[in-house]
Simulated scan of single mutants.
Amino acid sequence: MFAMQYDRFGGPDVLHLGTTDAPQPRAGQIRIRVHAAGVSPVDVGLRSGRTPMSARLPLPHIPGVDAAGTVDKIGDDVHDVTLGDHVFGIVELARLGGASAQFAVLQHWAHKPTTMPWTQAGAAGTSIETATRALDLLDPRPGMTILVDGAAGGVGSIAVQLATARGIHVIGTARADNHDLLRQLGATPVTYGPDLTNRLDALGVTRIDRALDVAGAGSLTELLHLTGDPTAVVTLADFTAPTHGVRLSMGQLAGEPDGRHGLPAAAQLFTKGRFRVPIDAVFPLTKAADAHRTSEHGSRRGKIVLTVDDEPEG
């Protein structure tokens, strides 16, 4: 099969189109012919070699943990799909990638709603799983107020919608040019950055019941002040969390229960017109290096997606 891959760590230019053997699904897995694949911060971190997980990667490596496509092979003990079904989901975490290719093996999946664009489906998997897992840890109840710090990005924008669907009032931090997006997703926007407490006071916000830090930009002290309880705060990106008594959620890599149940739930919300995956940019597979550059230096507004053709040129 054809695949975007790299055989050394470094900048986006290490990515190149090549060929390799198609992956085979094991029990409990399915293989898809990929139509779209997401590009996420974890892909960038692994490719650069800056994350400790990079040391676990056999090279050459195919990046990408999110994919959507047509089921073309089914492993043993799988009973909820048939060949030809359209699905979206997450690659097997033990492979730490493999979505930016002609075929990919999914570990978790849901059926793609008929009207959901492939670009949205291809970028949805890990953001939905991560946001669902974080919300489950926080356990906000209907009528509560949750603050999502970094709400316009790939995970934050999903967390806003899933929390709103649970009957939670959401306040989301973002740059001013992303405030309209947050309003469309159902959140009350507030400008991102230090002195958050004063800006919330100006909005008349008197209570924050839960806080989710997606950005990892050093806001934990302020979030603790706002909630008054370290157990009411979860971070996905700030590795100083233990020093604050705050939970750092790293998913299956840390032995936590996963949020796979969020995938079919989000698909149902989509069919009701209550969910979408904001897309920042779309690139063909052959422009994966440009997609990675955008992920590194772009606006962090929604998701970045690669579309996969039958026979890419380049």
Rank of each mutant, 00 (worst) to 15 (best):
G28K: 07
Q29E: 14
V39F: 10
H86M: 15
K73T: 12
P63N: 05
G49W: 03
R56P: 07
H79L: 14
V44G: 07
V42G: 10
G64C: 09
T51C: 08
A36K: 04
P41Q: 09
D43W: 02
A67T: 01
S48G: 15
R56F: 14
G69T: 01
D80F: 09
P41N: 04
G64K: 06
G64I: 04
P60S: 06
V34H: 02
A68M: 05
P63W: 03
G38C: 02
D77F: 14
V34G: 05
V42Q: 12
V34C: 00
M53R: 14
T51G: 10
V34R: 01
V87A: 09
Q29G: 05
G38A: 05
D80P: 07
G64H: 04
P52A: 05
M53E: 12
V81I: 09
G84S: 07
P63V: 02
V65T: 12
I30M: 08
P60A: 00
R33K: 15
R26Q: 12
P63S: 07
V81R: 01
V42S: 14
D72T: 00
S48H: 01
L57H: 08
V78K: 03
T51D: 15
R26C: 14
V78E: 00
F88H: 08
S54F: 05
P60G: 04
F88T: 04
D85G: 08
A36D: 08
A55W: 13
V71S: 04
Q24E: 14
D85H: 13
T82M: 15
G84H: 06
D77A: 13
V34W: 05
V39H: 07
V39Q: 09
A27F: 04
S48N: 09
V65M: 13
V78S: 00
T82P: 10
A27L: 07
A55D: 10
G28F: 06
D77N: 11
L46T: 07
G28E: 02
L57A: 06
I62K: 09
G69W: 02
P60T: 02
R26T: 12
P63D: 04
T82Q: 15
S54E: 02
D85M: 09
V87M: 10
D80A: 11
L57P: 10
D76M: 14
F88M: 12
G84C: 07
P60M: 04
D77G: 09
V81G: 06
S40R: 11
V39L: 09
R50E: 13
A67W: 05
P63C: 06
P41D: 06
D76S: 13
P25V: 01
H86P: 14
V42I: 13
P60Q: 02
R56K: 15
H35I: 14
T82R: 15
I32F: 04
V81N: 02
L46R: 02
G64D: 04
L59F: 01
V81H: 01
A55V: 08
I30V: 11
G69Q: 01
K73S: 12
A67H: 00
M53Q: 14
D80G: 03
D43P: 01
G69N: 05
D80N: 13
R50F: 13
R56A: 15
L57F: 11
T70K: 11
A68F: 05
V87E: 09
S48K: 11
S40G: 14
H86W: 15
M53T: 14
